[in-house]
Simulated assay, not measured.
Amino acid sequence: MYRLTSKENSLSAPSPDSDPIEALAARFGVTPIDAELWWQALTHPSYANEVPGSKHYERLEFLGDAILGALVADELYRRRPDAPPGELTFLRSVLIRRETLADWAEGVGLRDLVRVGRSARGFDAVGWRTVLADVFEALLGVIWLEHGLEPVQAFVRKTVVDRIPSYADARRELEPKNVLQERLASDGSEVAYRVVHQDEHGVTVTVSWPGGEASATARSKREAAVEAARRALDAIDAESGAGAHA
């Protein structure tokens, strides 16, 4: 799976002795102008609903999302001059997907700064990663408003675009079921998905093929099937690698 690792993340977590907003802005390479705007980017709607006078990040997220998409598209267009539009679309989707942005947000300690209301404190891991990805985009919106294009572009290049995956890896991440089907169909094998367990906590799906099976649990049948397909591809690759070295 295409993920940014902690070693790849060159940004450090905030110092406990520093002002949290100044420390956060420094990790983006800027100096904060309006601390309240930065706190707004760190405020979940649940907190704003419970604390009169506070503002949440959704408008800033809207701005940051548009800026991020445009900057990544521009970089891909310039760096992959021979890539067709479909390939560029896949690469952009991988680079700006929730999981990628949440990896960066977690890597720089944003979760400790996000303000959430009582109703959101029970978020599971998936819920928190969605919030962190939203906050990441909101912070890009703040930097754009305060400092303009250059620092946002520099940060996006450093943290996102400089790690462009191959087209094959992008397809594997976004369309693992299709990739699995194509790979097995090449030798006449078939793929079958089935739900093996379901309760209030989630759904477990198993994918089977002539050479084995893989399972995954997620909040929905679709998400579980997609993750099971990724694990199946990992298993097939591992088996192929072992066979090559036998």
Rank of each mutant, 00 (worst) to 15 (best):
A228W: 01
D237H: 11
R219A: 13
G141R: 02
G117A: 06
R59M: 15
Y57M: 06
L233K: 05
G86E: 12
D112L: 14
E213V: 09
R27W: 01
A216C: 08
V131R: 01
V114M: 00
P81H: 09
A105G: 15
L113G: 02
A35G: 04
L180G: 01
P81D: 09
L174T: 01
E239F: 08
H245A: 15
A235P: 02
G64Q: 03
R80G: 07
R172P: 05
S220P: 12
L60N: 00
T43D: 02
P16K: 13
P16Y: 11
A154I: 09
P32T: 03
G69R: 11
P16C: 13
I164H: 07
R78Y: 14
G107Q: 06
I164R: 05
E173P: 01
V126S: 06
L233Q: 04
T217E: 10
A185T: 08
E175K: 12
R79T: 13
G117F: 00
T204S: 13
V152P: 01
V203W: 05
H147G: 02
L24E: 00
L37K: 10
G202C: 10
Y47L: 00
P165W: 04
A214T: 02
L233N: 01
T31M: 10
L37R: 13
S12W: 12
V156P: 03
H56W: 00
E58L: 11
A238I: 03
A13C: 08
P20T: 06
S54D: 02
S189D: 13
G243V: 06
F155Y: 11
L184Q: 04
L24K: 01
P81L: 11
E213M: 15
T206D: 11
A228D: 03
F155W: 14
W39V: 03
S208I: 07
D65E: 14
V196R: 09
S189T: 10
A154T: 13
E75L: 10
L71E: 06
A13M: 11
E61V: 02
G211A: 11
D103C: 09
H56Y: 01
V207D: 01
R59L: 14
A35L: 09
V51C: 04
A192G: 08
Q40R: 12
T31Q: 14
D162P: 04
E50T: 00
D134M: 07
E58H: 07
S240W: 11
A228R: 02
F155E: 05
P84F: 11
T217A: 12
G141A: 08
E75P: 03
L95M: 09
G148N: 07
E87K: 09
V161E: 03
E227S: 07
Y193P: 01
P45T: 05
T206V: 13
A70E: 13
V131Y: 00
E227K: 11
I236A: 07
R92S: 13
L4K: 07
A48N: 02
V203T: 15
R222D: 12
E8C: 10
A225V: 11
G29N: 08
V191A: 09
P52Q: 09
D234V: 08
E50W: 00
A70F: 12
L149V: 08
A214W: 00
L76T: 06
T204P: 02
V205P: 00
G241W: 11
S54Y: 02
K7A: 15
A35H: 09
